[in-house]
Simulated assay, not measured.
Amino acid sequence: MSQPFDMELFLAGVLTGSYATRQRYVRQARIIQAEIADRWQRKTPWGWQRKHVEWFLDHHLAERSQATQYYYRLTVRLLSLRLAKSWTFSL
């Protein structure tokens, strides 16, 4: 029996800031994970490619405010840091 993926544990090594900031990063990372899993059946960030994250930023956040998009891009930057990927997306 497999355990569900723990996003908080995955990000623990790179999370910084106040408690509220860390919780926002984890919450947004879980939302990103759920959307990518629904669309491409990629359950963990280890299976993500740049196109998956770019799709999320372009389509899921298209109608959100610029402030919301900015905070999600910060979360994506944190995820790419944890994955040791050189993904860059404009803020």
Rank of each mutant, 00 (worst) to 15 (best):
M1T: 14
S2Q: 09
S2A: 12
S2Y: 11
S2D: 04
P4I: 06
P4S: 13
D6F: 04
M7I: 15
M7E: 12
M7S: 13
M7P: 05
E8M: 02
E8T: 08
L9Q: 15
F10I: 04
L11P: 10
L11E: 03
L11H: 11
A12Q: 12
A12H: 14
G13Y: 06
G13R: 10
G13N: 15
G13S: 15
L15P: 00
L15Q: 04
L15Y: 03
G17E: 14
Y19R: 14
Y19H: 15
A20S: 14
Q23W: 09
Q23V: 04
Q23H: 12
Y25K: 12
V26T: 12
R27Q: 12
R27A: 14
R27H: 09
Q28V: 06
Q28G: 01
Q28W: 10
A29F: 05
R30H: 10
I31L: 14
I32H: 00
A34E: 07
E35K: 08
E35T: 00
E35M: 07
E35G: 00
I36Y: 01
A37M: 06
A37S: 08
A37T: 01
A37L: 09
D38G: 11
R39H: 13
R39Q: 09
Q41S: 13
R42T: 02
R42N: 08
K43Y: 09
K43W: 07
K43L: 11
T44Q: 06
P45I: 03
P45R: 01
P45W: 05
G47C: 04
G47R: 01
W48N: 03
W48R: 03
Q49L: 13
Q49D: 14
R50S: 11
K51T: 04
H52T: 09
H52K: 03
H52W: 09
V53M: 00
V53A: 01
V53P: 00
E54A: 07
W55T: 03
W55A: 00
W55R: 02
W55C: 01
D58N: 15
D58Q: 15
H59E: 10
H59F: 10
H60Q: 08
H60K: 10
A62G: 07
A62V: 11
E63C: 10
E63M: 06
R64Q: 15
R64W: 03
R64N: 13
S65K: 10
S65W: 04
A67K: 05
T68M: 04
Q69P: 05
Q69R: 15
Y70L: 14
Y70C: 15
Y72M: 12
Y72T: 07
Y72L: 08
Y72Q: 14
R73L: 11
R73A: 06
R73E: 03
L74P: 04
L74S: 11
L74W: 02
L74Y: 04
T75Y: 04
T75E: 05
T75G: 09
R77S: 12
R77L: 02
L78S: 09
L79S: 01
L79Q: 01
S80G: 11
S80Y: 02
L81H: 13
L81N: 14
L81M: 14
L81A: 11
R82I: 06
R82V: 12
L83C: 05
L83V: 06
A84G: 08
A84Y: 07
A84E: 15
A84L: 07
K85S: 11
K85N: 08
S86G: 14
S86W: 08
W87V: 09
W87H: 13
F89Q: 00
S90G: 00
L91S: 05
L91H: 11
L91V: 05
L91D: 08
